[in-house]
């Protein structure tokens, strides 16, 4: 059974409210424009894309930090938009969001004990010293009892991100949305945090949505990857498949742009930059940058269809491109 299900969710931000400076005629920024994802229990699903692709907005809608403009989000079979206020509060405990910046998401003036306890009190629960210490130790901050006395400013970025995870674990969530959780960390500590998320998934059956711009770390951690471009999913599938045999031209561009340690790859041929989300090209939104684009790409929006088992892509020319490669 699926733990997280998003059905054709959309988030359109009206430009009207931003019109003080803009000369435009209103309209919408289509941050997320029809995203459908199904995530099984204890699966780690990566949302990969560049800035402005809508990956964070999608994550926030899954956590009900934002309400979708259209479409539904189901967590464990329950429709988030149909819950009463009280149930939503209970629900919040089960879906937790881990933020990108471990420096601004923790109050420096509190000690670790208070950092961990305060959010619990809002939800009307309490944790014993032992539980808190155990949670800290589980996240690699040992001895936990000593860490409880510390102040966050005495801790490194990696440790602070571990503290964020430890504090969330006390709530025994079912789903966590991890938004760029390692991008602020030094390379040498990144893998440690990724491994921790993976261990927690295995031990506690956590379902995780991992939002990142780094497709390689997504491949490392995730079971499945969905690649987003301008508010739409353009490719989705098992992570090794998507990375090693990308179907959509955008995913291939993304892979070609990733700096590689191993070998100096073929010269890049990337044109342009992602267009403005308030002014998305008609048809396939990738068409201005796509080397394979033809007439149909300017007119019709391609559907996300299954190309191989469990591997989906939204491109009119997927099969032609495949043939060319063989």
């Amino acid at each position: 059974m699926s733990m997280v299900e998003a059905r054709d969710v959309k988030k359109w931000f009206p430009l009207e409210s931003l019109r003080i400076f803009a000369r435009g005629e209103g309209g919408y920024v289509k941050a997320v424009d029809g995203v459908t994802i199904t995530i099984k229990k204890s699966e780690i699903h990566g949302l990969v894309g560049e800035s402005g692709s809508g990956k964070t907005t999608t994550g926030k809608m899954i956590c009900k930090l934002l309400d979708p403009s259209a479409g539904t989000v189901l967590i464990d079979g329950r429709d988030l938009s149909k819950l009463s206020r009280d149930t939503i509060k209970e629900m919040r405990r089960e879906i937790q969001y881990v933020f990108q910046d471990p420096y601004s998401s923790i109050d420096d003036r509190l000690n670790v004990r208070k950092v961990m306890r305060d959010p619990l009190q809002i939800l009307g629960i309490d944790a014993t010293e032992e539980e808190m210490a155990r949670s800290l130790e589980r996240c690699g901050l040992s001895p936990g009892k000593e860490f409880l006395e510390k102040h966050p400013r005495q801790m490194s970025g990696g440790q602070r991100q571990r503290l964020c995870l430890a504090r969330i674990l006390l709530l025994q969530p079912k789903v966590i949305v991890a938004d760029e959780v390692v991008s602020m960390l030094d390379v040498s500590t990144r893998v440690g945090v990724l491994d921790l998320i993976n261990e927690l998934r295995r031990e506690k059956g956590l379902t995780c949505i991992f939002i990142t711009h780094d497709i390689i770390s997504a491949q490392y951690l995730c079971d499945k990857i969905s690649v987003m471009y301008l508010g739409k999913i353009v490719e989705s599938g098992p992570s090794n498949e998507v990375v090693s045999r990308p179907k959509h031209p955008y995913t291939r561009v993304l892979m070609a742009s990733v700096p590689r340690l191993e070998a100096k790859g073929a010269p890049l041929n990337i044109v342009g930059e992602p267009p403005d989300a308030a002014n998305i090209p008609s048809g396939c939104s990738f068409n201005p940058r796509c080397p394979y684009a033809t007439d149909i790409c300017h007119k019709e929006t391609p559907e996300l269809i299954e190309i191989e088992s469990d591997h989906l892509a939204a491109c009119h020319h997927v099969r032609d491109i495949e043939e060319q490669r063989h």
Partner: peptide, 23 residues
């Protein structure tokens, strides 16, 4: 050596990156 070993690599899924302990 440790720094290079801490970076996940795309072409080699069997490569297991390791973080550097300590600060």
């Amino acid at each position: 050596i440790d720094l290079l070993a801490s970076i996940p690599r795309s072409t080699d899924p069997d490569f297991k990156p390791k973080s550097i302990p300590g600060d």
